[in-house]
């Protein structure tokens, strides 16, 4: 039994995802409250592992693991947990972390708290706030027993707190890659054609307020500066200013991004149907009575062009 916190980091194309840093930062805070260590775990090759502000970093550097392999990750983490008996294992509640967290929980009998937005130490254990039921309810739970598996929603903690330069210790993989039943074949690059707005984390969505096709460019620029994609209400698509693949709403696509920045969309029910479960909705509209303000988390009664241009200067 230790009071260490293991963080299973994730990376793609040689880059760690933000949630990895977020978790390392959080793990430091938790570990210091418990008198343990924050241990970043990096699995796979082709990535610089000396980038975390962890107390230590373990790098299981195996060329056979260059692509993500859920079975290998699961078995490696299982072996690590056996060896280190940590107090908690943190995963991202992401397409990779989700493959392993609940599996580890069922395999080891340790409780799992998913959809975690916040973790705090309470009397030697943890209290985890989880955003369940599509964000409609927050559950506060205390994992029982010696070890907790916690799967964290990306964007829950600051990234900076986890960034550092702790030198990683390379370790051999405890798992024989040849024995695996899941084999990585090849990476699939995003297909050509238009982007899939339902798969985007950030959307800058424009409505009729954008005024004309010539102004769509401004939205594109803002989106680019934010690392976002442009989506739209139906009138914009009907007018041919954007392709139909970008339409959000009842007769368009249903989206659930982390950020939905709305420029000149009134908030008709048909539009809301497609985006109301976005995590952060910010609406800019000149009409202070626009119904979108009843749904958005943040709003401003302002001209979208002025705001977009001012934002561009700041980004």
């Amino acid at each position: 039994m230790s009071n260490d916190i293991l963080v299973i980091t994730e990376h793609m194309d040689g880059k760690f995802s933000d949630v990895s840093f977020e978790m390392v930062g959080k793990a430091r805070e938790l570990a210091s409250a418990l008198g343990g260590q924050a241990v970043a775990v990096v699995i796979g090759s082709g990535v610089d592992a000396n980038v975390f502000a962890s107390d230590s970093t373990l790098h299981i550097d195996d060329a056979a693991l260059s692509g993500f392999n859920p079975e290998a990750y699961a078995k490696i983490v299982e072996a690590l947990v056996k060896e280190k008996s940590p107090k908690a294992v943190l995963f991202g509640w992401t397409v990779t972390g989700m493959d392993v967290a609940a599996w580890l929980s069922a395999k080891t009998g340790a409780p799992c708290a998913a959809y975690a937005k916040d973790i705090r130490v309470d009397g030697g254990g943890f209290v985890v706030s989880c955003q369940v039921y599509g964000g409609k309810l927050m559950a506060e739970v205390a994992p029982e027993g010696d070890m907790a598996v916690i799967a964290c929603l990306a964007g829950s903690f600051p990234v900076e707190a986890g960034q550092g330069s702790t030198a990683a210790t390379a370790t051999a993989s405890p798992v024989d890659a040849g024995s695996l039943k899941v084999k990585f074949v090849e990476a699939i690059k995003p297909a050509g054609g238009d982007v899939d707005i339902t798969a985007q984390a950030k959307l800058v969505s424009i409505g009729r307020g954008i005024g004309g096709k010539e102004n769509v460019e401004l939205a594109e620029e803002l989106a680019q500066a934010l690392g976002a994609t442009v989506s739209a209400s139906r009138p914009v698509v009907d007018a041919g200013w954007l392709p139909r693949t970008r339409q959000v709403g009842k007769s368009g696509l249903k989206v659930k991004p982390k950020l939905y920045l709305m420029l000149g969309i009134s908030g008709a029910p048909e539009h809301l149907e497609g985006m109301k479960s976005a995590e952060l909705i910010i609406a800019i509209n000149t009409d202070k009575k626009a119904p979108i303000f009843n749904v958005a988390h943040y709003g401003a009664t302002a001209d979208l062009f002025e705001v977009a241009e001012a934002m561009l200067e700041l980004l």
Binding site: V95, K183, A187, I188, P190, A191, A199
Partner: peptide, 13 residues
């Protein structure tokens, strides 16, 4: 398997 933003990977299981 899908990762974010249209990227993914092919596996043999």
């Amino acid at each position: 398997k899908e990762f974010a933003g249209g990227a993914g990977a092919k596996y043999s299981v």
